[in-house]
Amino acid sequence: MAAAQKVQQLIDDNAVVVFSKSYCPYCRSTKRTLDDLGAKYYVIELDQEDDGSEIQDALAKISGQRTVPNIYIGKEHIGGNSDLEARKNKDLKNLLKNAGAIA
């Protein structure tokens, strides 16, 4: 229960949240995409958190996605890296702007 509350708090308190693992190449790609757009975002590296596996279990229940990266923009579940990349040339900039992650 505490992990689910922590996840929801992170989603509610941040314009963009990336649930990540430090060694994951797809997570690195997501962070690079957000960096390239100048987005402000919060990253939580699940492999470096004591409750990382509990957080990952909570994410699976909340979003239906267990894999990382697990991305939220403006409290909306975006999906993973391929979902983020698919939106890059469509509505990603507007989504980030509307969430307050970019000027």
Rank of each mutant, 00 (worst) to 15 (best):
L96S: 08
S82A: 00
E85Y: 06
L10H: 14
L46R: 00
G74T: 14
Y26E: 06
A3N: 14
V18K: 07
K88Y: 15
Y23P: 05
K97S: 13
K88F: 12
Y72T: 10
G79F: 10
I44W: 06
S22F: 05
G52D: 09
G52F: 01
Y23F: 12
N70W: 02
L59A: 08
G100C: 02
G38R: 11
A86Q: 15
E85Q: 05
D13H: 03
S53R: 13
A99R: 02
D13Q: 09
V16P: 07
Q65S: 00
L59E: 04
D13T: 07
E45S: 02
D47C: 12
D50W: 03
V18G: 06
L34T: 03
Q8L: 11
Y26R: 08
D91N: 15
P25C: 10
V43W: 02
A101Q: 12
L46K: 01
V17Y: 03
K93C: 13
S53D: 11
R28Y: 07
I73P: 08
G79M: 12
L37C: 09
Y26H: 14
K97I: 08
Q9E: 12
Y41W: 08
Q65T: 00
G79K: 08
Y41R: 02
F19K: 02
L84N: 13
G38E: 13
I55F: 07
A60F: 09
L34G: 04
V43Q: 08
